[in-house]
């Protein structure tokens, strides 16, 4: 039953079946769209009522998993938190897979190159005291200001929207792209990390931040407000300061475990957790 305010919107979806098609093409579907309906629900409507072969990637449906990134009316974004009436123009909605990634099928991009680049730039904390890192004797000491240096960049959900929007990544396959570089900075600036020299060696080459010239599109399209462009510019600043022997990172010792005098007991008024419902948990 149609709700009040329901209007028909034409979904112009880019289709590609690797077993059948030589090249992608567009196919139109007319979808009744009530107020508040998101693009992902429109795609489900098509799959359930019109064409069961339409393919895309989806998991959480609430902007957390980063699976449903796609190009919606020319802008890379998540289908699950984009309302159709906000972006449709003259009753038309163009839906295509994220550009700059190969298409596997219909709206499914191959995000493999993103994850390869991401892992190449060491997205983890590295310390010399390997045994301590594997089995920490206590929590590492980090101030609230230290945390704020990288907290914004931890919200990345690896949806690939920033890579799809980056004009440098569009022409230069050797460039790492905004997502891996933002995550490299997130770990580089983390006060618990001790691998600045190793990271610097990787970032000095073509994989590094120097091909970024601040088109800023990665930050504009990021559905989580991560601002990769800011991370990349701050990374450049640290690398330039290091080159001038003015940087703090080369002299920084990774944060140690919390000293006893800094330890605080449990704050008053915080209740104990309820009993575990699974045997052996905790």
């Amino acid at each position: 039953m149609a709700n009040e305010g329901t209007t028909n919107v034409i979904f112009r979806v880019r289709r590609y079946d690797p077993d059948r098609d030589a090249a992608p093409y567009y196919q139109d579907f007319t979808v009744p769209v009530p107020p508040g309906m998101v693009v992902l629900e429109g795609l489900w409507y098509i799959k359930e009522h019109m064409d069961a072969t339409l393919s895309w990637r989806v998991s959480c449906r609430m902007g957390v998993c980063g699976s449903c990134g796609m190009l919606i009316n020319g802008s890379p974004t998540l289908a699950c938190n984009t309302q159709i009436h906000d972006v449709a123009r003259d009753g038309l909605l163009m839906v295509a897979p994220l550009p700059n990634f190969d298409i596997i099928r219909d709206l499914v991009p191959d995000l493999g190159p993103l994850f390869d680049r991401h892992s190449h730039l060491m997205p983890f904390i590295v310390r010399e005291d390997h045994d301590e890192m594997q089995e920490p004797s206590d929590q590492y000491w980090q101030s609230a200001d230290d945390l704020l240096e990288y907290l914004q960049f931890t919200y990345c959900i690896k949806c690939g929207c920033c890579m799809a929007a980056c004009p440098t990544f569009a022409t230069d396959p050797t460039y790492s792209g905004p997502q891996p570089l933002a995550q490299a900075y997130r770990y580089m600036i983390d006060s618990r990390d001790g691998a600045f020299e190793e990271r610097k060696a990787i970032l000095a080459g073509e994989a590094g931040p120097w091909r970024c010239h601040y088109a800023g599109e990665c930050s504009a399209v990021c559905p989580k407000g991560v601002d990769p462009a800011r991370a990349i510019q701050l990374m450049k600043r640290e690398l330039v300061l290091d080159y001038l022997r003015l940087g703090k990172l080369r002299r920084r010792k990774p944060a140690g475990v919390l000293p006893p005098e800094k330890k605080r007991g449990r704050r008053e008024g915080i209740p104990e957790h309820p009993p575990f419902t699974v045997e052996g948990a905790g």
């Binding site: 590609y16 690797p18 020319g74 897979p97 550009p99 700059n100 190969d102 298409i103 004009p167 569009a170």
Partner: peptide, 14 residues
Amino acid sequence: RYPNRLGIKGWFGG
């Protein structure tokens, strides 16, 4: 896979 890199078109956007 079908290559979908924008190339120079990516400079001018959508």
